[in-house]
Amino acid sequence: MQRTVPTTGGSVPVPSPDHRWTVLFFITEPGIGERLPELGGCTTGLCSARDAAAAFGRADARVLGVSAHAPGHLAEFAEGRALGYPLIGDEDLSLGRELGVPEVRAEGRTLFARAAVVLDRAGRVRSLIHPVPEAERHAELVLEELAALAASEALSHG
């Protein structure tokens, strides 16, 4: 898979040609937990990735958030949380569906379930992390998976 996607910071290529890994943090909707507590945790999950920015950098991973909304809808949220990485607006759900991300129905709309997808430089899905039962551990689970993928590659090349 190779495509250019609209984000809160302009269009970007997915996967990143400049990183070993591209990590896509899929969320339902920023702030939805205020209305539907069972879907809460989006902000917590995205902030966990922000707080682990140095670890993602060491893993040579580009971090992007993804939600089924227009980038403009997400821009204020991203700026207000100082995420430090762009959010992809996947309004038609095409990116998530191409990658096999689970979906949920809420308030009459189809949204993404909380998940993460790890892509390699060639755009191959190397891991789909779902479910993510604890939003505060979203980044931690992804970093564990990146370490396992790196170790597996080292064994197969060494």
Rank of each mutant, 00 (worst) to 15 (best):
R137V: 08
R97G: 14
L155R: 13
L99N: 02
T8W: 09
L141F: 13
L143G: 03
E79A: 01
D60H: 05
R81Q: 14
G72Y: 05
I32G: 00
T8P: 03
V104M: 07
F112T: 01
G96K: 08
H19S: 15
P13L: 04
P17C: 05
A55R: 13
L64P: 05
E145V: 13
G84W: 08
S156W: 11
P86Q: 01
D51F: 13
D60A: 02
S127G: 01
R20Q: 11
A61R: 00
T110H: 11
G108V: 06
T22W: 14
A135H: 10
G65C: 02
A52I: 10
S156M: 09
A150K: 12
G123D: 09
L128P: 02
F25S: 03
P6H: 03
G96H: 09
D18G: 06
G40I: 11
P15R: 07
A116R: 07
E134S: 11
F56Y: 03
F56T: 02
L93V: 13
R97V: 14
R109P: 00
F112K: 01
L74E: 07
H19T: 10
D120F: 11
S16D: 15
E145D: 12
F112D: 00
I32Q: 09
T4I: 12
R121K: 08
G9S: 13
E91P: 01
R114S: 01
H157N: 14
G45T: 05
R121H: 06
P86L: 02
D120T: 10
D51Q: 09
V104G: 11
L93M: 14
R81F: 06
E134T: 11
T110I: 14
T28S: 04
R3K: 09
S16L: 07
E153Q: 01
R109F: 07
P15L: 04
D60K: 04
I27W: 06
P133C: 05
R62A: 15
L24H: 00
E103D: 01
I32S: 02
V14N: 04
A68Q: 10
I27F: 08
S11H: 08
F77C: 04
